[in-house]
């Protein structure tokens, strides 16, 4: 329990740090981008409304610490300000549905990729020098060297535009009514195939290689010698003795790579005009919609922190040694 609380404390601290960076960066930046941003509103709304808006965003003439606490107060009530691109929609509303699509797409892709990549790594290490190890691993490493979004472009080009097997954009067809119907879910699935596959293909090699390398290290340990000496069936030795032990450092690595993989999948969304947070991010960048950008940064960061906490809990469940200290 102490371990869980300590981890939780760490993530809260990390969350606070990212909130604070979010506050400090616009105010430290040269050229007063805040004014530049509000300049874009001019002509669209009255000067009084502009002052009110500035106050709402927390950009006032008040001293920094007052601004900071106003900012924190707004965040705590879920108020991320107003989007410029979708003015006058609040940022939280704009992000809301986008986050769901991102979590669905990236979440599924990452879990599939980790599971398959880990299993391939186990097999490659077990049959060292076999074709999995000497042919598939380098091939996947080569694929992993392509930017995710480039693979997405290629997949879209070949299977979307070229062969016409899959839809070209968006998360579901316009003529399908969203709801818990089988038609809708099938449609969502069809739309997710290409983006998810390109994320899986781009990341598979990384998981495979790291699992393979930890497996190789575990295979040389006395735990494995004893398992072989006991005459256990090979499959049991491979899974319950070798893979089970090699999995622990890999799951920790999984948590650490989550942010990186998510970043890549955000770019993939853009290629497919997938209505997730990545797509919103590019909208925000192109329209210089700073509130939306910052809101996205916060929401994505918090999601990654939560996922990391979940991974910690998973490690706890997997490793009796950590559990003992918990």
């Amino acid at each position: 329990m102490r371990y869980v609380l300590r981890r939780l404390g760490f993530y809260l601290l990390a969350a606070w740090a990212s909130l604070t960076m979010n506050f400090v960066i616009p105010r430290l930046a040269p050229g007063d981008p805040a004014t530049a941003m509000f300049a874009r509103f001019e002509g669209r709304i009255s000067p009084e409304a502009l002052v009110a808006l500035k106050t709402a965003f927390g950009f006032t003439d008040a001293p920094w610490h007052v601004q900071y606490f106003t900012y924190l107060k707004h965040l705590l009530t879920g108020d991320l300000g107003l989007s410029y691109a979708y003015y006058p929609s609040p940022v939280s509303e704009v992000i809301g549905t986008g986050l769901l699509w991102t979590l669905g797409l990236a979440g599924c892709a990452v879990i599939i990729s980790f599971a398959v990549g880990t299993m391939l790594g186990v097999l490659a290490a077990w049959n060292r020098g076999g074709w999995l190890d000497s042919a598939l691993a380098p091939a996947l490493a080569f694929l992993g060297a392509f930017p995710y979004f480039w693979l997405a472009m290629l997949a879209l080009y070949l299977f979307g535009f070229g062969l016409g097997w899959f839809p070209l954009r968006h998360a579901y067809s316009h003529d399908v009514e969203p709801g818990a119907t089988l038609t809708f879910l099938a449609d969502v699935g069809r739309h997710a195939v290409l983006p998810a596959t390109s994320i899986v293909v781009a990341t598979l090699g990384g998981w495979m290689l790291s699992m393979r390398n930890t497996m190789v290290a575990v295979l040389g340990t006395d735990t494995l010698r004893l398992a072989h000496a006991k005459g256990l069936p090979p499959r049991q030795v491979m899974l319950r003795y070798a893979a089970r032990n090699a999995l622990l450092p890999n799951v920790t690595g999984f948590g650490m790579a989550l942010g990186f993989v998510l970043s890549g999948s955000l770019l993939t969304e853009i290629v497919f005009s997938y209505p997730g947070t990545g797509y919103l991010l590019i909208l925000a960048v192109r329209n210089q919609d700073y509130p939306l950008m910052q809101g996205l940064f916060l929401v994505i960061t918090l999601a990654v922190l939560a996922a990391n906490f979940a991974v910690d809990l998973l490690c706890l469940w997997l490793d009796p040694r950590t559990r003992a200290h918990a």
Partner: peptide
């Protein structure tokens, strides 16, 4: 633990 791309953006 803070994701790099959103921070960089």
């Amino acid at each position: 633990v803070i994701p790099g791309l959103p921070l960089a953006i």
